[in-house]
């Protein structure tokens, strides 16, 4: 059973001048942790707003929990949890006041669903009298999540919850999402960080309003059409320039301490030839190895 369904959704702005969402269709199953992966401006937020009944699509249909996003918007608003891109909290209210307020807005109390937010809220408890505007990015994010969960939603929409949050808080946040998934909540999350894609069960890669690929992270990686190699040497900047101008190399992108490359002729001869060329160019500590692509490799491949 699919909890979220999109059929050929189109959304344009400025009277059709800007096409934010271009014929997007996908489904999110009950209890699934689904990731929408793409850069800023890819159309993620528009999709979230259409699903949370905040925007009307120009064409196409969509439903959440079987309710139509246009006709049955009231029913959807009763059942979903939504955390917009900006941590939408009242900065001048304390942690506790924010939580209590959102609980009453959703016709419930903090105690009623406390077990659901307990694991997250205990981390916030020491600061419960602090104004939410004075919290760090990571803490704001946790509080916003608590507020979105307080009425035990069936589907949780998280629009870029980890943007601008440090690596440690991000990791903690994904742990929390795993916990929530176990409670049976369907989660749709968007992120510009490619490394977070592997933490989702299924992902959709989105660019310029169109979906490039939808599958499990493993399957997407498997679909990478070529053999991918990682190469490094003592001077990475010079190496990059060299690889780019090398006719043997089909693509080359830097990935941290390695450059990821694919060859025009994908065989062992090419590899040996490259090493030889690099040695002739007086690179030292040359290392070339075959690797499994990351989601980011796949994303770049799909973009070109």
């Amino acid at each position: 059973m699919a909890d979220v369904v999109l059929n050929n959704i189109v959304k344009t702005y400025n009277k059709g001048e800007v096409k934010a969402v271009n014929n997007v269709s996908f489904e999110v199953n009950k209890g699934e942790l689904f990731g929408l992966i793409g850069a800023d401006g890819a159309g993620k937020t528009s999709i979230f707003r259409i699903l949370t009944t905040l925007l009307l699509p120009n064409s196409g249909t969509a439903s959440v929990n079987g309710f139509d996003v246009v006709k049955d918007y009231k029913a959807i608003r009763k059942n979903v949890g939504y955390m917009p891109g900006k941590f939408s909290l009242y900065q001048d209210l304390s942690v506790e006041e924010n939580l209590n307020f959102f609980a009453t807005v959703f016709n419930t109390t903090v105690t009623e669903n406390y077990d659901l937010v307990k694991n997250i809220y205990v981390q916030l408890e020491p600061f419960k009298n602090r104004r939410s505007g004075k919290l760090s990015g990571g803490m704001k994010q946790k509080l916003a999540l608590c507020c979105a969960l307080i009425h035990r939603p069936t589907v949780l929409f998280l629009d870029e919850p980890t943007t601008g949050v440090d690596a440690v808080s991000r990791r903690e946040f994904w742990e929390m999402l795993k916990g929530l998934k176990q409670q049976g909540i369907t989660i749709l999350v968007s992120t510009p960080y490619m490394d977070e894609a592997t933490l989702c069960e299924r992902i959709a890669l989105i660019q310029n309003g169109s979906i490039m690929s939808i599958d499990t992270p493993d399957e997407i990686v498997k679909q990478f059409p070529e053999n991918l190699f990682a190469v490094r040497a003592d001077n990475m900047s010079r190496l990059l320039n060299m690889l780019r101008s090398n006719k043997q190399i089909k693509s080359c992108f830097s990935f941290g301490d390695f450059h990821h490359i694919t060859f025009q002729d994908d065989n062992e001869l090419s590899q040996n030839k490259l090493i030889q060329t690099l040695q002739e160019a007086r690179f030292k500590d040359i290392e070339l190895k075959h690797i499994t692509p990351t989601i980011e490799d796949c994303f770049i491949k799909l973009m070109n």
Binding site: G38, A39, T163, P192, M194, F253, E296, I300, M303
Partner: peptide, 17 residues
């Protein structure tokens, strides 16, 4: 480079280099 797509992010680093 917050929120920038992976290809542009690399182009940005080219500028830095």
């Amino acid at each position: 480079t917050g929120g920038v797509d992976p290809v542009t992010r690399r182009q940005f680093w080219d500028l830095i280099y």
